[in-house]
Design a protein around this nucleic acid. Structure first.
Length: 572
DNA sequence: GCCGTTTTCGGCCCGACTGTTTTCAGTCG
């Protein structure tokens, strides 16, 4: 079994959990968590790096010790030190650590004094009133813990961004309806446009004498008030989503916005730069001694540490600070840069809008072209097109195009990549199309090598255009199939193929690190909606969010080009 | 466990709120 970066991240996170419970040096714990974060967000596979003889200690945050542990994990699939720790502590302890209100110290106490090592036995002990007897615990804490355990909070999935958006929109409108509120905005991972969010962080500035916290906890959707203070309150909504509200002074609003947008690792890196310049940076401003020197705007915070303002989508400590210092931050793509959509369906297969409706929808969005990419015959479930029906669709497009001015419907198909790597329709048919979008819809369970070979073989076909939703994942629903994406990106670069960033909010496939990798290899990316109805053309904005997280500039994206230029690029 | 224009040891980002305490540890972000 090949070892993936996410396996390494899992092992290091578990190490951090167990070391924390054993009261290890907190900075040592942090080193493991940092390493987990680094590998979790890296496109380049550690296995490959080791196979190529690369020096892992060149990665910031990885020293001799962790490099050696990574080598051990890659070679053996496990880490002896973790295995040993897991013999001392039960595996359910990781779940305990994820229960809100429980951290390392309390989990340690529960285990050492009551022998509790998993949520089920914690529930039992809390019911029996044994938890409250521990030092530092009480009846309130016990009741809170019991409630969290009963609701299985440790296994709560993160909320997809587009779901959080609806919650944030309603809540912001509710807060702004209060006369005392001057500004209200959502920060956190929501503002960074992460695919999923763990909670919502809302910031407000208010006039004097505001009772905004009362207003906030009175919101109709609030199920439980977790905490309530003068400047910070937390609630859980009926949907299960936690919302934190922070009240900020106007003069430090930019510093607060920066602080609560994160990511944590990015903030730490920025504060370190501040430290070197003798500055203290917190959520209220940038301070030299007791004197506030900046903080009204985010840009003013960055300026104090000698950086240009970094876009929220880039703030993950994944090289953006170094790039900013070198003046090499990309000019990120915006929705206005998009000139067409290269992947949509119609009612000829599993879509619900007609060809003409989809074309009208695209024109209404200011686009210049739209590729019709209905499914191919292998996808019988979606009434996929055979050669005869595809050619009929091509004729219909030709006829419609004759009636359209300043807009072009592109003849295309989402053709299945069959298990053996062949495409689902013969070359004679594919060659009449303007482009092809090629996709895996079957045999998701192939081994990494076979899946990679399958797609590489498909890319050898001269009519292979864009690799659609390259990993097949559905957020919170289906894991990506196992494939060597890095190799696919290299192959796409060699063969003149393209990768899709599927904008569907459940897909967002490619992920940001692979967008970054494709950009570095010069592989152009199509940001496509995969719309199955006119309304879904608006999903383009989700694709733009992900593209920005992946450092993409307009020049990295296929469908920022006019048809004339696009046509040339598509020629292999 | 990492790191270094104070470099191989001694630092490591910063503050709010809760609950259990009686001055603060633990958790969270």
């Amino acid at each position: 079994m090949p070892v993936h970066n996410r396996d390494i991240a899992d092992i290091f996170n578990k190490m951090a959990d167990l070391l924390e419970i054993k009261a290890a040096n907190p900075f040592r714990v942090r080193a493991y968590r940092d390493a987990a974060r680094i590998f979790g967000g890296m496109a380049k596979s550690a296995s490959d790096m080791i196979a190529e003889g690369a020096d892992l200690t060149e990665i910031p945050g990885i020293g001799d010790d962790l490099a050696e542990k990574i080598r051990e994990i890659v070679e053996t699939g496990s880490l002896a030190q973790l295995t040993a720790l897991e013999k001392e502590l039960p595996s359910g302890i990781h779940d305990l650590m994820r229960i809100p209100g429980l951290g390392a110290r309390r989990v340690q106490a529960l285990y050492e004094q009551l022998g509790i090592g998993d949520p089920a036995s914690l529930e039992e002990a809390a019911r029996a009133g044994r938890v409250r007897q521990l030092d530092g615990f009480g009846a309130r804490l016990e009741a809170n813990i019991l409630e969290e355990v009963e609701k299985k909070r440790w296994s709560k999935a993160r909320t997809p961004w587009h779901v959080a958006e609806a919650v944030a929109r309603d809540l912001l409108a509710y807060l702004q309806a209060d006369d005392s509120v001057k500004q209200a905005a959502a920060a956190g991972s929501f503002r960074r446009r992460k695919e999923t969010v763990g909670d919502l962080d809302i910031l407000v500035t208010c006039r004097r004498g505001s009772d905004i916290m009362d207003h906030f906890i009175s919101y109709g959707d609030v199920e439980k008030v977790i905490s309530r203070g003068k400047t910070r309150s937390s609630v859980r909504l009926r949907s299960g989503l936690q919302v934190d509200l922070r009240k900020l002074p106007q003069v430090g609003y930019g510093a607060g916005l920066h602080y609560f947008t994160g990511a944590k690792a990015h903030n730490i890196a920025v504060r370190r730069l501040g430290q070197k310049k003798g500055l203290k940076i917190n959520e209220y401003g940038v301070f030299k001694g007791d004197k506030r020197v900046a903080g009204r705007s985010e840009a003013s915070v960055y300026a104090e540490v000698g950086l240009p303002c970094i876009a929220p989508e880039l703030r993950e400590d994944r090289g953006e600070i170094e790039a900013a210092q070198r003046g090499e931050l990309p000019e990120l793509i915006r929705i206005e840069d998009i000139r067409g959509d290269l992947h949509v369906h119609t009612d000829a297969t599993d879509g619900s809008s007609t060809l003409a409706e989809m074309a009208d929808g695209a024109r209404a969005r200011g686009w210049e072209y739209l590729a019709i990419t209905d499914h191919s015959q292998h996808l019988a479930m979606a009434r996929g097109l055979d050669a005869r029906r595809l050619l009929a669709s091509v004729e219909a497009i030709d006829r419609l195009n004759e009636t359209l001015k300043d807009f072009r419907i592109l003849k295309s198909i989402e053709v299945d990549i069959l298990k053996d790597g062949s495409l689902d329709l013969p070359d004679e048919v594919l060659k009449v199309l303007d482009l092809t979008v090629c996709a895996v819809h079957s045999a998701f369970g192939l081994s990494r090598d076979l899946q990679t070979e399958r797609i590489l073989r498909a890319m050898d076909n001269p009519f292979f255009g864009i690799l659609a939703h390259p990993t097949g994942r559905l957020i919170n629903e289906r894991e990506p199939y196992d494939v060597d994406l890095e190799r696919l990106i290299e192959a796409a670069a060699e063969r003149g193929c393209f990768m899709e960033l599927n904008a569907h909010p459940k897909r967002l496939d490619l992920t940001a690190p692979y967008c970054q990798a494709a950009r570095e290899k010069g592989v152009k990316i199509a940001i496509s909606t995969d719309a199955h109805s006119v309304d879904h053309l608006d999903d383009m904005r989700f694709g733009i969010h992900q593209a920005r997280r992946g450092w993409l500039a307009p020049g990295d994206v296929l469908n920022t080009r006019g048809w004339g230029e696009l046509k040339k690029l598509l020629k292999r």
